[in-house]
Design a binder for these strands. Structure first.
Lengths: 106, 106
DNA sequence: ATCGAAGTTTGATGGCCACCGTACTACGAA
DNA sequence: TTCGTAGTACGGTGGCCATCAAACTTCGAT
C-alpha cells in the first residue's frame, strides 16, 4: 500500500536499442496504431485500454515486439500491464524519428 | 547532346507517400544501408555503385521497394539507373524521421 | 551487326511472422 | 476458496517477402 510499484517487465537498455528493430516494430499497422494511442494519451495504457482490431493473444505478441524493440516500456501493476512510450530514450537515440512518424497523416 | 535527361521512373507523388510503406522500406537492413549510402553521397548513385551483399536481382527488388514507397527517386540515364533520396518530400511529410534514422549508430 | 555492360523479369524456395483459438497463470474480490 | 478479470504461452496456419539463378532487354561502343 502506498509505495510506487516499479515492477518493470524486461526490455533493452537504451544503448541496446537498435534502429532496425525499432523500424521493424513501427512498420506494422497494428503496432503503429498502438504507438499513436500511447502518444495521444501521453501516459500509461493497459492492454485492455488499447483499441485495435486483433485478438488478445495477437495484441500480446505486438506489445512484446514493441517492448523488445525498445519502443515501449511495460510495468506490471497487479494483474494489469501498463504500457508507455519510451519517448526520452527514442528522442535521444534517434532525434526526430518519433515526431516524424507521428506527424504522418492517417 | 547536352540536354538534361529527366527520364524519371514511376514513383508515388508526394501526397501519395504512406508512412507505413516508408517504415516497411526502411526496416530492411539492406535497404537501410542503401539509404545510408545515398545520404552520405548526397547525390545520385547507380545500382552498380551501391555496396550491398546481395545479388543483382535482389538489389533490383530492394530498389523498387524503396522507389514505390517514395523513399528514393530513380532516373534512367541510358542503360544506367540513378538513385537518389527524396529528402525534400520525406522531410516535409515526416519532419525529423530521416534525420533520426540516419543519426542511429551502426 | 556484334558484343559487353547494366539492370529487369521470372520462377522457385525458404524463412519469418501476423493471426487465431485454446489452455494456462496470476492476481484481486467476494 | 471460488470466481472473474487480465493477460501470457502454445501450437498451427497462411501469407508475405528476401533471396537466388537464369533468361531476357536495352543501350552504347566497337
Amino acid at each position: 500500500m502506498g509505495f510506487m510499484s516499479t515492477d518493470l517487465v524486461a526490455g533493452p537498455e537504451r544503448d541496446e536499442i537498435r534502429i532496425e528493430a525499432v523500424l521493424h516494430a513501427l512498420a506494422d499497422p497494428v503496432r503503429l496504431e498502438v504507438v499513436r494511442q500511447l502518444a495521444r494519451q501521453d501516459g500509461e495504457i493497459a492492454c485492455g485500454g488499447l483499441d485495435v482490431p486483433v485478438s488478445k493473444s495477437t495484441l500480446t505478441h505486438h506489445l512484446r515486439t514493441l517492448r523488445e524493440a525498445g519502443v515501449t516500456a511495460t510495468r506490471q501493476q497487479g494483474t494489469i500491464r501498463l504500457q508507455s512510450l519510451r519517448r526520452n530514450d527514442l528522442d535521444e537515440l534517434f532525434p526526430g524519428l518519433l515526431d516524424g512518424v507521428l506527424a504522418a497523416r492517417h
